[in-house]
Simulated scan of single mutants.
Amino acid sequence: MRPRALARTAGQALGNPLSVAYLLLAALLIAAAASGGDRGGPAGLLALALSLPTGAALLAVADPLGPWVRTGAAPYVLLAVSYLVQALLLGLLMRGLVRLLRGSGETVAPRA
């Protein structure tokens, strides 16, 4: 796949409302968890739950690298990568469903 085609596919996958809403929710949860306070714990758990299953896979792969992975900003970076991967997958799923519905003759909301 050429770089231009890859960039166009990624833009279409991440540019839909479902992926944008997912990324906004993830950003809010990470911000609430990082700010600490009384809401830091539940927000952190929700942020981890939202990143499953790719977040768990990334943490499992990074865990043998040493204890530094569990400290500082490293977990937040791993969560951000997980959120981007999942938003891309959600966008590709949504794109495929729209194409399937358009091909079957079902009515689909027009693109903006």
Rank of each mutant, 00 (worst) to 15 (best):
G66W: 15
G105E: 02
A60N: 04
S104K: 07
R70M: 12
L101N: 08
L24P: 05
T9F: 09
V61Q: 03
Y22P: 01
D38I: 06
G44F: 14
L28V: 15
L59P: 04
L14Q: 00
A32Y: 10
L59W: 12
A73T: 10
L48I: 14
P42M: 08
A109C: 07
G11N: 08
L45Q: 13
L58F: 15
A13H: 06
A62M: 07
A74C: 13
L101Y: 11
L79A: 02
L29S: 15
A7L: 05
A49D: 00
V98D: 09
D63P: 04
V81K: 02
P3T: 00
G96A: 07
R8E: 14
G91Q: 10
G44P: 12
L28K: 06
A7N: 04
V81I: 14
N16A: 13
L24W: 07
V108F: 07
L101I: 00
W68P: 01
V98H: 11
L50D: 04
L79H: 01
P42R: 14
A5Q: 04
A43V: 11
P53Q: 11
A32T: 15
G15W: 03
A112F: 13
Y76E: 02
G66Q: 02
A27R: 05
L79P: 01
L65P: 14
L6P: 06
S35F: 10
V69E: 05
V77A: 11
Q86C: 04
A27F: 15
D63Y: 12
R95V: 02
L48G: 04
P75R: 15
S104P: 06
V85H: 03
A10K: 04
L101M: 10
P17I: 08
L45N: 14
A43K: 11
L14N: 00
L14K: 03
L45R: 15
S82G: 05
L79C: 01
L84Y: 06
T71S: 11
S35I: 15
R95I: 03
S19V: 05
L65H: 12
A33P: 09
G36W: 05
V61K: 02
S19N: 06
A26Y: 04
G96Y: 01
L97M: 04
E106P: 00
V20T: 10
L89T: 12
R95G: 02
G15L: 00
T9S: 10
G91F: 13
L45H: 12
A7K: 09
Q12Y: 11
I30H: 01
L92F: 04
V77Q: 02
A80V: 00
M94G: 10
T54Q: 07
P64K: 07
A27C: 13
R102T: 15
G103I: 09
A13C: 07
S19M: 09
R99G: 00
A26I: 05
R70G: 14
G11E: 02
V20R: 15
L59S: 14
M94F: 12
R4T: 09
G55R: 10
A60Y: 05
L58Y: 14
V20D: 00
L29Y: 06
S104L: 12
L29M: 08
N16Y: 03
A109P: 01
L90T: 03
R99K: 07
A5H: 05
R39D: 01
V81P: 10
